[in-house]
């Protein structure tokens, strides 16, 4: 991860249905910075403006007020090359499986690269890479019909369809929403690999704090169209004042640690990873047990 800023957002505002009776201010001053190679989570209650914000990143929406700079390019500029921008910033919508339209998986994933006008050879290479990246075997799956897939597999196909554009920045709107626990974990692993190994900058929206602490380097908390606070999952989740002040909720493992702390045990709330929590509980248990045996022996 470098210190080079790949995305900068300054005082971004957006009003839906402007100048109509149904006017609704969805963003009211967003400030954000993302470094190249970072993995950023965006959390916030429903209606806080998360989806509206990320649709600005690939030019689906143009800033009404404020500034967005992506890789040195100002998106308020009306001359911005949208095609190039959308290739650089791959955006995966919520429930992307509903956008599948081809009969065969291979054709579905190849749609984007073909639209770029790439030669067949290159398209094939990209499709293969993208499918393998999300855990779909190219040889086995490319000629299978799309309708015969499970929900989780369909989502992988949709993700591969965006990855085949070889984006530098991958933006995901609630990537795991509605998946079963197994597919969820599998998908999270793939996204982590894309970020950590393939060095793709990742920005994702999530309602699940465990998922955020598993994946993200940093997170932003949104409410009412503004970003309230940001920091590493470690800093934010272990700080009870912040969690309560911004109504973030508490990851289950952090909750357990605080309950133990309130009960008078000495714990370290920064170590809230499931395995660390287990280790802490274990050490509490062993000291407690020792104390009990000591009592008996006296």
């Amino acid at each position: 991860m470098s210190e080079e800023k790949i995305i900068e957002i300054k005082n971004l505002e957006y009003i839906y249905m402007q100048h109509t009776p149904l006017e609704h201010q969805a963003l009211s001053g967003i400030n954000m910075e993302v470094n190249r190679g970072e993995c950023i989570a965006i959390i916030g209650h429903t209606g806080s403006g998360k989806s509206t914000l990320i649709q600005h990143l690939n030019g689906l929406m143009q800033p009404q007020k404020g500034k967005i700079i992506v890789d040195g390019e100002d998106l308020s500029d009306s001359n911005v090359d949208l095609k190039a921008l959308r290739r650089k910033v791959g955006l995966v919508f919520q429930n992307p499986e509903s956008q599948i339209f081809e009969h065969l998986i291979g054709d579905e994933v190849a749609y984007g690269p073909f639209k770029l006008g790439l030669p067949l050879n290159e398209v094939r290479k990209r499709v293969k890479w993208a499918m393998e990246m999300v855990g779909l075997s190219f040889n086995e799956m490319k000629d299978r019909p799309t309708y015969a897939l499970s929900g989780g597999q369909k989502r992988k196909v949709a993700l591969a369809g965006v990855l085949a554009l070889k984006p530098e920045i991958l933006v995901l709107d609630e990537p795991t929403a509605g998946l079963d626990p197994y597919s969820k974990n599998e998908l999270l692993e793939k996204i982590k690999k894309l970020n950590r190994e393939e060095k793709i900058t990742v920005i994702f929206i999530s309602h699940n704090l465990e998922e955020v602490s598993f994946l993200a380097h940093r997170l932003y908390v949104l409410a009412n169209g503004k970003n309230l606070v940001d920091g590493t999952p470690n800093d934010l989740f272990s700080n009870k004042e912040i969690l309560e002040k911004y109504k973030i909720g508490t990851p289950d493992s952090v909750d357990i640690l605080y309950k133990l702390k309130d009960a008078g045990f000495s714990i370290n709330p920064r170590l809230f990873d499931v395995s660390c929590v287990a280790a802490q509980i274990f050490s509490i248990l062993s000291t407690y047990q020792r104390r009990v045996t000591d009592d008996i022996s006296v």
Partner: peptide, 13 residues
């Protein structure tokens, strides 16, 4: 509207 945005995001014109 969502479909138009989603497909434009993967290069549809």
């Amino acid at each position: 509207e969502k479909l138009m945005k989603a497909q434009a995001s993967r290069g549809a014109e």
